[in-house]
Amino acid sequence: MRKKVNSFLLRIILLILGLIVVYPFIWMLSSSFKNNSEINALKQTLLPKVFTLNNYLNMNEHFDFVRFFINSILVAVTVTIIVAYTSTICGYVLCKYKFKGRKLLFGFILATMMIPWCVIIIPKYSMMKVFGWMDSYKAIIIPAMFSGFGIFMMKQNSENIPDEIIEAAKIDGANALQIFHRIIFPMSRNGIASISIFQFLWTWDDFLWPYLVIQSKDKQLLSVGLRMFNGQYATDYGALFAATAISIIPVLVIYMIFQKQFIAGIAASAVKG
């Protein structure tokens, strides 16, 4: 009985905490159907007094929303696929292959995670200029191809894969690439799902780097477009909320598809070491 009461209380607390977390999002979603004077009014209501779709209809007045959205999808999906692959292969090698300097190399990879982005952004920008990659998706995709966090996570994940399976594959005549592609990669799907969600989210949300390296309007990403609503003196909150509401849909879809694997992947990476 006591256990049931505790469990019930715990659920109530979690429900309240969940509502606190979700409320700003619900408010934003609801406000995307209000006009600006209602959004800025002294007396706030959760639901719109006057329901309007104008914010959605006029979204494209600030920038070409659909084009920016497609650009963001293209870049985020490409980076996510590449990072998922490179992280898995690097994590696997660092976990299962014994070679000289392995720990030093892993330490170096971990160290890249400790460097604040603001320290590397200027040299990275200069490199892009020298390479002639400015105003090209190469400047966004290529520097993001390897992720220190991804490698770390997939190395931990590879610990779950028994060495015996790899040995058996070797005995059956599989070469290193075959082992990776046919055994390790499919067995790492939980970890891959986790890193994919993280990476997709980071790439989708990243603003400063795409803004710095992309000049052309038709190549710009959605995160940059969302900033266009902030003027020097005023912000069009209605349109901003409408655009933000739509922009989070891909992230929700990705999470909904991979949520089980995501949780399993995070748990697996956390307990092994």
């Binding site: 959605y56 494209n60 929303f65 659909v66």
Partner: peptide
């Protein structure tokens, strides 16, 4: 579908 309807069907490009 919601996205496509909202941003392409109803939305108007400047």
């Amino acid at each position: 579908m919601i996205f496509v309807t909202l941003s392409t069907g109803c939305g108007r490009t400047k």
